[in-house]
């Protein structure tokens, strides 16, 4: 059994079914508890009402996407230096999960903004930076799949993973300064962050941990999927060469 696995994943991360299953169970249970906490335990916001509850989803998802892109940066850097496929697999998986998370953060943000700010979208620095992040990492995934072959795709993606991440602070400062010069008509949207009550803060913290587990699980699942894809590719190649 061990020998077939090493054939399936040469140079890959190997298989970790037991850790993955454990993570899946933990994440599932924590998610259910999280839902209970969000809707039953956390108090209703006195100003914003029930719509405020989207924050227990929105904030962890947004922070996890930043974490994901940091992992992409590290994985890309290590891949260019070491050239082992495992680092590319980590960066690739993390980028895909990160794009899903940042998309969810944008969508939940838009849903929240409509009743609270009375507009779907505003060019506020955090929103703008998040949108640009989304564009950078969509480009990361695109250049990988449009490359002439897989190893070139890995290198191009790593280049975008490094250049894009280094660019993020510059993007952030440029949009903050840009906004501070054209003041936004929407005021004080983050002022209520200080007014977070004790129970709310605890539920938010719990949501963070839940989504951290969720992120780790998704990345592992994606790496395994990639390993399977590669194993399948090799089988096809061998079959074709043997002429069957």
């Amino acid at each position: 059994m061990a020998s077939t696995q090493s054939i399936q994943n040469p140079g890959g991360l190997g298989s970790f079914p037991s850790i993955k299953t454990a993570l899946a169970v933990i994440t599932g249970v924590m998610m259910l508890v999280d839902l209970y906490l969000i809707f039953m335990v956390a108090p209703t916001d006195s100003v914003l009402g029930h719509v405020q509850r989207v924050f227990y989803f929105h904030v962890p998802v947004a922070i996890m996407s930043f974490l994901a892109f940091f992992v992409v940066f590290l994985g890309s850097l290590m891949y260019l230096i070491k050239r082992t496929p495992k680092w590319d697999a980590i960066a690739h998986a993390s980028a895909e999960v990160g794009v899903v998370f940042v998309t969810l953060a944008l969508i939940t943000g838009i849903i929240w903004a409509r009743p609270v700010w009375n507009t779907w979208w505003t060019w506020e620095p955090r929103l703008t930076t998040t949108l640009i992040l989304w564009l950078i990492y969509v480009a990361y995934l695109m250049v990988r799949s449009y490359a002439p072959n897989q190893s070139k795709g890995a290198v191009y993606a790593a280049v975008m993973g490094i250049v894009g991440f280094v660019d993020v602070p510059i993007v952030y400062y440029s949009v903050v300064w840009w906004r501070s010069i054209h003041p936004s008509p929407v005021v004080g949207p983050f002022a209520q962050a200080d007014a977070l009550d004790g129970t709310m803060a605890l539920v938010l913290l719990y949501s963070f941990i839940t989504f951290l587990f969720f992120f780790a699980y998704m990345v592992m699942e994606r790496i395994e999927l990639r390993n399977t894809e590669e194993a399948l590719g090799r089988m096809r190649f061998t079959l074709r060469r043997s002429g069957r």
């Binding site: 564009l135 480009a139 695109m142 250049v143 449009y146 490359a147 002439p148 250049v163 510059i170 440029s174």
Partner: peptide, 22 residues
Amino acid sequence: MAVQTRSREIMLPVLFFPVVLP
């Protein structure tokens, strides 16, 4: 990078614009 990808005319702006936005 873009010159070696498929549909290179589209790939360059997709990579270029988000990064040079600042």
